[in-house]
């Protein structure tokens, strides 16, 4: 069963996203991007009183998930 043929069964109402849905989707995407940046990319931009706290805290996870580390 391809997406092609099955899509005919969906009603038109289901195929349109409301403005509210778009707003929710955008907000969720932005928050998630910030979270991913914080754990995988931050080099002291977000929290860096005396160094890169986030980087060091997420250090092992960055290495393990293949994110570039110092």
């Amino acid at each position: 069963m391809s997406l092609h043929t099955a899509s005919h069964t969906a009603s038109a109402a289901d195929a349109t996203l409301s403005t509210r849905d778009w707003a929710i989707a955008a907000a969720a995407a932005i928050v998630s991007l910030i979270a991913l940046y914080a754990v995988f990319l931050d080099q002291g931009t977000l929290v860096s009183a005396t160094g890169s706290y986030l980087h060091e805290f997420a250090h092992d996870g960055r290495h393990l998930f293949g994110a570039p580390c110092h």
Binding site: D14, A35, H59
Partner: peptide, 29 residues
């Protein structure tokens, strides 16, 4: 921190997954 990182990354990736899923789901619910 490794465990926290994995959970945070899992949730954030899960949100993107859900958005991608929603795009497909609305065509073939």
């Amino acid at each position: 921190g490794l465990v926290v990182t994995a959970v945070v990354a899992g949730i954030a990736l899960g949100v993107f997954f859900a958005l991608a899923y929603a795009l497909i789901h609305r065509r073939t619910p």
